[in-house]
């Protein structure tokens, strides 16, 4: 018995010694999906010679894991750069004083609506909130916008992610200012009622919703363009409808990048932010599986990726959405979690 115990102790000590030796030039918390971001990070490392320690969220966790972590680590910041795949939680972190200002030279041609007034964050490479339609089950030309989700004609065939996390929460929060307080509340209450009646499905996230539509369990639902593109690439029978083109328009949610307050590696963090905000990264993301929409009209993109100029974009003040997010989340939690 002595030998196995000694062996175990030696193994543990060796593992501890080996494990304490890892270090990096810059620490990135990245909510963009690992499969899309890894090659870009590798390219940055190759171009600059800097090493990046990247931590990713998983789809099931949305941005929550990283945002919670940044808050919990605020006593001893370890993250330098936060690359969020949406914007509302970034704004909320800025409002809490957890971000540091940085005006990246790469951001100078990014439209003002995607930049924080005090340089706490910059938006780029957006996703649109579209309706993914299974073309075997529904004719996309018959689906026009958010009203179709609650139309009795589509009872049992439509769905959306529960608006408690990620871009769906941001989207729902934006509806309050776009539609007006009462109209947005009534719409979301109708969604909940229809779900209770089994006439509208609620998934945990957009990717799950995309799978439900792709596999024909429901006919259409709200998701993001990157999830839609995954289904398209897999050869699923799907089409995208940019909703409400005769109404409030289609919501566009950019990625956002920011430097964390008291970032341990400030200089390297700035270089990484400059890289992430470069036209080249926007172009790469447009051509990638995530099919992100460049916020700069000048950036090249493939034919299947629309430009923001190609459709009516919902007018959203992201600073307001970010500020309202905690209260709206509480309200939506009360409505959807019972």
């Amino acid at each position: 018995m002595k030998s196995p115990l000694r062996f175990a102790a030696a193994l543990l000590i060796a593992a501890t010694v080996v494990s304490c030796s890892s270090d990096a030039d810059v620490v990135l918390y990245c909510a963009l999906d690992q499969v899309h971001a890894e090659s870009l990070i590798a390219r940055f490392e190759q171009e600059t010679g800097l090493t990046v320690r990247a931590e990713f969220d998983v789809e099931a966790n949305k941005t929550i894991g990283l945002v919670s972590r940044i808050r919990a680590e605020s006593a001893a910041t370890r993250c330098d750069v936060f690359w969020n795949n949406e914007i509302a939680n970034t704004v909320a972190l800025g409002d809490e004083g957890l971000l540091a200002p940085y005006a990246s030279p790469s951001a100078k041609d990014i439209p003002a609506q995607f930049r924080s007034k005090d340089d706490l964050w910059t938006g780029f490479a957006a996703r649109a909130r579209i309706l993914i339609v299974n073309t075997d089950l529904a004719d996309p030309s018959e689906i026009h916008g958010m009203a179709d989700l609650i139309d009795p004609k589509w009872a049992g065939k439509a769905g959306m992610a529960r608006p408690l996390t990620g871009t769906t929460l941001t989207h729902a929060t934006a509806l309050y200012s776009v539609l007006g307080e009462d109209a947005a509340r009534e719409y979301l209450q109708t969604v909940k009622r229809l779900n209770d009646e089994g006439k509208l499905s609620l998934t945990s996230g957009n990717a799950t919703l995309m799978k439900q539509v792709s596999t024909g369990q429901i006919a259409f639902g709200w998701t993001d363009t990157d999830d839609f593109n995954v289904a398209l690439e897999k050869g699923e029978p799907v089409a995208a409808v940019y909703p409400d083109q005769n109404g409030v328009g289609t919501m566009v949610i950019p990625n956002s990048v920011s430097m964390i307050k008291n970032a341990p590696h400030e200089d390297a963090a700035k270089r990484l932010i400059d890289f992430i905000l470069s036209e080249d990264v926007e172009r790469t993301l447009a051509f990638s599986r995530s099919a992100q929409i460049p916020v700069r009209a000048s950036v090249e993109r493939p034919a299947h990726v629309k430009s923001a100029a190609d459709f009516k974009v919902m007018a959203v003040d992201f600073a307001t959405v970010g500020a309202e997010l905690p209260a709206r989340h509480e309200e939506l939690k009360t409505l959807f979690l019972d």
Partner: peptide, 18 residues
């Protein structure tokens, strides 16, 4: 994910931590 949502208390914990 399809049909009426079956919410459980762990949803509440997760959403609040969000």
């Amino acid at each position: 994910s399809v049909g009426p949502k079956f919410n459980v208390y762990a949803d509440e914990v997760f959403a609040t931590w969000g």
